[in-house]
């Protein structure tokens, strides 16, 4: 297989959440490489740069300063170069309608940030694993919808 590791990016303005996120992957030992960005602008700047390594899964916090998650999602979906990235919305809370709306806009995964670290690890493992299944078993990515 072309990549040894699974490349993961998180864009979240909350320092604690970024910490929980990287800690969780560290403990998971899933052969992943995690990059984090502090807001949407930083994220998009990176993705649009020449030497960017596009992630397998991109975790997007919805509520971020400067550029929020929905704006990032729209930009990524409009860009054919990035359309292969699996998008996971990573948010504190949302109504059913908001969840459905982000799915309709093209998100693949909606994660309500769990309230325990154990749960967080479980959720992230599930996301990576499922994404791996889609990646390695040539499943129809258009049908990739998951809510955790």
């Amino acid at each position: 297989m072309p990549n040894d590791y699974i490349h993961i990016i998180l864009a979240d303005d909350d320092e604690d959440d970024r910490l929980f996120f990287t800690d969780a992957f560290d403990e998971l030992k899933m052969n992943t490489k995690v990059n984090t960005f502090n807001d949407g602008v930083e994220l998009m700047d990176y993705l649009n740069s020449e030497d960017a390594i596009l992630p397998n899964v991109l975790f997007l916090d919805l509520n971020m300063p400067l550029k929020n998650g929905i704006e990032c999602l729209n930009e990524i979906k409009a860009n054919s170069k990035m359309s292969d990235i699996a998008i996971a919305i990573y948010s504190t809370s949302a109504s059913e309608e908001d969840i459905e709306e982000t799915f309709v806009l093209g998100a693949n995964i909606y994660i309500k940030k769990p309230s325990s670290f154990k749960q967080l690890k479980k959720v992230l493992a599930e996301v990576v694993s499922m994404n791996w299944q889609y990646h390695t078993n040539s499943l129809n990515k258009d049908n990739f919808l998951m809510r955790l």
Binding site: D14, D16, P114, S115, S116, F117, Q119
Partner: peptide, 11 residues
């Protein structure tokens, strides 16, 4: 958000 963090830190 803070509540969730409290919960996570508790865990």
């Amino acid at each position: 958000e803070p509540l969730r963090k409290i919960q996570t830190f508790i865990s």
